[in-house]
Design a protein around this nucleic acid. Structure first.
Lengths: 349, 349
DNA sequence: TTGTACGCGTTATCAG
DNA sequence: CTGATAACGCGTACAA
């Protein structure tokens, strides 16, 4: 900056202002400054700027892993929206190690991050973060929001920010409508004409519970409740496959399965194949999430898609806008492929 | 820092040194400082530190996308190694938009990043980056390394850094041994007893060419060359499936296929299924990469795994060590699942 | 063994 | 409309 100032015979203060298009600077000098800055390849020092103004435009992002396809898509949404708004995201994958979560927070604090987005790690990080005065948004939190509040939100879409003292930072929640997704998936199967159902439920977390609830609600409304619910001992593929295999042994086609998520559905597809059940002729399977791979299973997986990109983008908005809604719930969308069809249909088409 | 100094009645300089465990500071004061720093929750300002010392410990990472499972794993490797060495990675996904690549570089320069890692974006970014004086490493570059050099490296494992003026920064290459992977995959099929092969090749990039070369070499050495090579018009699943479908129509089992990568192999699995070919009884398929999903295809995909994590970790080393090898080549590892078996074997096991 | 003083590159305040 | 000047938090040469 000194260089630019020297070349034009003006002060650095003028250069600084001209670069920000300060209207108090004459148009002529503004252009001159811009031109010289361009010529000497002037690059503002982010560090110096941060030191001076306390605003860092840094937004920290903590997530479990980045390799699982679901979070990757969310991260992309975060990144693109952040850049649109002039923020620089700082990513930190914890790989499920809680000491890394603490470390992430430490790093963010050193970097003077003021906004934090979390993609379902432990609840302690968001808590500590608000305690430190950060603005934080949580995407698909596993437990921080009381179930009944989410449920209310799931019908009303969005709850206004709480009316207490507005200056007090609080955790914003951006969530996929798990309950609605469970309902949507189940309803699709009902409309296809199925009578006998089974749900392969997930681990003991909010999303799993809500999806199960949606399954039950849809069935209840169709006067088809009760129906069986399968529980895998552990959230691993083998355990899920075993659960499905066991169930299939004592069952007869046609059957319709709502899986907790796409990976569970894939496990079900395997189990069905091994057990000699044809999908979708004998067994219709529907997943939830629409991971990238869902398009490539055999048969292609019918599922309820999460708006992963928007989830990320909205989290950025929530954390940067002062008056964002306290909780925002996003609808799933039915994606029809080949794994679910009418019962007894000879042709899966 | 002033606070800590004031509380102890020492100068900030002392605090600064004590925090760095400067042996010139008495043990007593060092401990006292550490204790107070802890108590007042002192957090060093990364910005101030960067401003003062020009070293930022920031390493920029440019990649195409983060959602595809392969890059995600590499990114994890980068991150964990970077943290071990005290570096802070700055990620930037370009989504294939070249204007974003330029923007990424701009951001990095403003942040005073001095090390840059690239996961196969366009070659222009690394070039510009070295021009700016950055240390750069490229993971699985698509074209920057002359083929014969990679080939030489593929047999000798590692080439020493060039002996010219050592101070001059140059692009380091970290590469998967694509040639060897092609050979390994093909050899596995040969050893299984196959006689008739086909290769589904990839787009016109280095990795595709080298894998094809490996396919040819292995077959030539087994006196089985020539064998057919399939080319998909475009690098999309549909195009790949179409290519395989067309070929299968005019072919007879048993057949052994080496696919360019796991996604190509998945496309082949689909095409085979539609055409009524059983895998692996009629058609053995082997992929390359070992993406997360390879374990969940039906049947499970036999493939040659890339050491994705190590690729990332070594890139960090290459970019942080002054005397790292110019090009490092990593071997693939055979992962046997169910998609490849001996020809005519009744039981895929 | 410790303190003093300066500067890193910016921006904000206050004068002019 | 523009220029001096101070200060952000830290590290380090130099002096004590």
């Amino acid at each position: 900056m000194k260089d630019v100032a020297a070349q034009l015979g003006v002060s650095t203060a003028t250069v600084s202002r001209a670069l920000k298009d300060d209207p108090a600077i004459s148009l002529a000098t503004r252009q001159a400054v811009a031109e010289v800055a361009q010529r000497v390849q002037y690059r503002p020092s982010a560090a110096a700027r941060r030191l001076r103004t306390k605003s860092t435009s840094l937004i920290g992002v903590v997530m479990q892993s980045v390799g699982d396809g679901y979070i990757g898509a969310v991260v992309l949404g975060i990144q693109s929206r952040a850049r649109e708004l002039g923020y620089q995201p700082l990513f930190f994958a914890t790989e499920g190690q809680s000491d890394l979560e603490a470390q992430a927070l430490e790093v963010f604090l050193s970097e003077q991050v003021t906004e934090l987005i979390t993609v379902s790690p432990s609840a302690s990080v968001p808590r500590q973060a608000v305690a430190e005065g950060l603005h934080v948004a949580v995407i698909n939190s596993d437990e921080a929001v009381p179930a009944r509040r989410i449920e209310r939100a799931a019908t009303g879409r969005t709850l206004p920010a709480e009316t207490g003292r507005g200056a007090e930072p609080m955790i914003k929640h951006i969530a996929f409508d798990d309950l609605g997704a469970g309902r949507l998936a189940t309803t699709h199967l009902i409309e296809l004409g199925h009578q006998r159902f089974v749900h392969l439920r997930g681990p003991n977390v909010r999303s799993s519970l809500l999806r199960l609830l949606g399954y039950r609600q849809a069935l209840t409304e169709a006067a088809l409740w009760p129906q069986p619910v399968l529980t895998a001992a552990e959230p691993f593929m083998q355990s899920r496959e075993a659960a499905v295999t066991g169930f299939l042994e004592a069952a007869k086609p046609p059957l319709a399965m709502v899986a907790y998520d796409d990976m569970s559905a894939v496990a079900a597809l395997h189990a069905a194949h091994r057990a000699g059940w044809r999908v979708p002729q004998d067994l219709s399977v529907i997943g939830i999430d629409d991971i990238q791979f869902a398009a490539y299973t055999n048969p292609g997986l019918t599922t309820v898609a999460q708006p992963k990109h928007r989830l990320g983008a909205l989290a950025v908005d929530a954390v940067t806008e002062r008056d964002a809604a306290e909780v925002t719930v996003l609808d799933g969308e039915l994606v029809i492929r080949e794994s679910a069809s009418a019962p007894n249909s000879g042709d899966p088409q």
